[in-house]
Design a protein around this nucleic acid. Structure first.
Length: 433
RNA sequence: GGAGAGGUGGCUGAGUGGUUUAAGGCGCACGCCUGGAAAGCGUGAGUAGGCUUAUACCCUACCGGGGGUUCGAAUCCCCCCCUCUCCGCCA
């Protein structure tokens, strides 16, 4: 969440930056500050009265010790009235604080100054491209055709098991998926300096709040219930991304400055309800309820935040380069950026069978927005507690990578050539029917 | 699912209603001492918030969390959470 002090000191600035997102959140600033003022007035008076009560109570204790019971009793009556007033004030302050914080949690992060202004995806500037669209001597098939011919994915039976939006990988398809996961984890641990972690796939609600998934996107998550015990519903959720558990690993901790930077890489399946999303219900692997992803997470000192973001994008790009895929990097404009992010790069890979670019990675610097929500800090050499920048990026999402891979490397005979770096993992250089 | 034990500062560990400002110990930082160290001695150090130009002072809160009793709660009462051990079931 945003620093309440920033809202107090620079309300206009905060409002202006929020307005660039075109989501109407700037209207909340005044309301938040009204709650805040109410809270501060009440807490200040309450604290003064508490100081008075504390000293009076001590005096009563001393009088009792000296057996001056009459004087002690008189004093008690006096203090009792103070106690009643304190109770009133504490009720006001608790209510005001809760209202302020509940609203503050619904306010997104401020876009970084370098982010392009814009309303929608069409306004996202392209930063760079790698490779080029390949000219095929034949009409390239799309991944659905390829997967069916090569028996990589059994779409019909996936749907039979779990409904639309769920995939059953089969044979070489299952092996390709597993090979890609291992390839990605090995690349980021061995070549890019990340430490591998394997998080739980079911996590507490507080983790979802910590990364900013909740309260806003509660309708997009799969809530877990223990058996038929309805009272357990809403406490645990299937991970929508490994970012949620991994970014929270050090929540409510104060790290030593020497521990930074922290760089984690984690594989997890990702579960998304995609309620109301366009495109689900169409066949294929582009938008599904469950997909695999290898996620990159960094906790870094604020001064390093943006350099580390550039490096993270480079780490994700390396994946596509090694796999011989054409892609472009775009910078999300203010109106298209995610809730917690201050700056986001998307990487879109070319899928010739689809004839379109597919988003396979989204790398964001959330600055201290998430760290503040999860109370994650680090102590500087001078003893100051600061919030680190938290970055997350896909390195990369699997289902769409799978699509781009088979569509790009398909051959005229319908087989798929496996790129060199993947061959040791798959133990074959070609997928054939 | 059943039974039991426990949750106090960085760690350990006392504290069952009022000079406790959470004892003592360990560890940590700084200083004295020393040729240098150790030992010894001394000093200091938590988190959040309020008030502030201030990371100065002062004040408030924090002994798993939330309520309650009281002038006053780590301590008494109620509810909840978590951890550990044993039994049962189980990959």
């Amino acid at each position: 969440m945003l620093d309440i002090k920033l809202l107090r000191d620079r309300a206009d600035f905060v409002g202006e930056r929020l307005a660039t997102r075109h989501a109407g959140d700037e209207a909340k600033v005044t309301e938040i500050l009204a709650h805040d003022t109410r809270w501060r007035d009440a807490i200040a008076e309450s604290q003064q009265l508490k100081a008075r009560r504390n000293s009076a109570s001590k005096e009563i204790g001393a009088l009792m010790g000296q057996k001056k019971t009459a004087e002690a009793e008189a004093k008690k009556v006096e203090v009792r009235a103070t106690g009643d007033r304190i109770a009133e004030l504490d009720q006001v302050s608790a209510e005001a604080e809760a209202a302020r914080d509940a609203l503050l949690l619904t306010v997104p992060n401020l876009p970084h100054a370098s982010v392009a202004l814009g309303r929608e995806a069409a306004d996202n500037p392209e930063i760079r491209t790698h490779g080029a669209k390949f000219d095929y001597a034949f009409k390239p098939r799309n991944h659905i055709e390829l997967c069916e011919q090569l028996k990589l994915v059994d779409f019909a039976r996936g749907t039979k098991l779990s409904g639309s939006g769920f995939l059953l990988y089969t044979g070489w398809g299952a092996r390709l998926e597993r090979a890609l996961i291992n390839f990605l984890l090995d690349l980021h641990t061995s070549e890019h300096g990340y430490t591998e972690v394997a998080p739980p796939y079911i996590i507490g609600e507080h983790c979802m709040v910590g990364v900013g998934q909740f309260p806003k996107f509660k309708d997009q998550a799969y809530a877990v219930q223990e058996g038929l015990d309805g009272s357990t519903l809403g406490k645990l959720y299937l991970v929508p991304t490994a970012e949620a558990p991994v970014a929270n690993i050090h929540r409510e901790e104060i790290l030593a400055a020497e521990q930074l930077p922290v760089r984690y890489v984690a594989y997890s399946p990702c579960f998304r309800a995609e309620a109301g999303a366009a495109g689900l219900g169409t066949r294929g692997m582009i938008r599904v309820h469950q997909f695999d992803k290898v996620e990159l997470i960094k906790l870094v000192e604020p001064e390093q935040g943006y350099a580390e973001l550039e490096a993270m994008v480079g780490n994700a790009e390396k994946v596509l380069q090694l796999l011989g895929l054409h892609y472009r990097v775009i910078n999300l404009c203010t109106g298209d950026m995610g809730f917690a992010s201050a700056k986001t790069y998307d990487i879109e890979v070319w899928a010739p069978g689809q004839g379109q670019y597919l988003e396979v990675s989204s790398c964001s610097n959330c600055e201290d927005y998430q760290a503040r929500r999860m109370s994650l800090r680090y102590k500087t050499a001078t003893g100051e507690n600061r919030f680190p920048h938290i970055l997350n990026g896909s390195g990369t999402a699997l289902a769409r990578l799978f699509v781009a891979l088979v569509e790009t490397h398909q051959q005229a005979d319908g087989s798929v050539l496996i790129p060199e770096p993947l061959r040791p993992y798959l133990r074959t250089d070609r997928l054939t029917a």
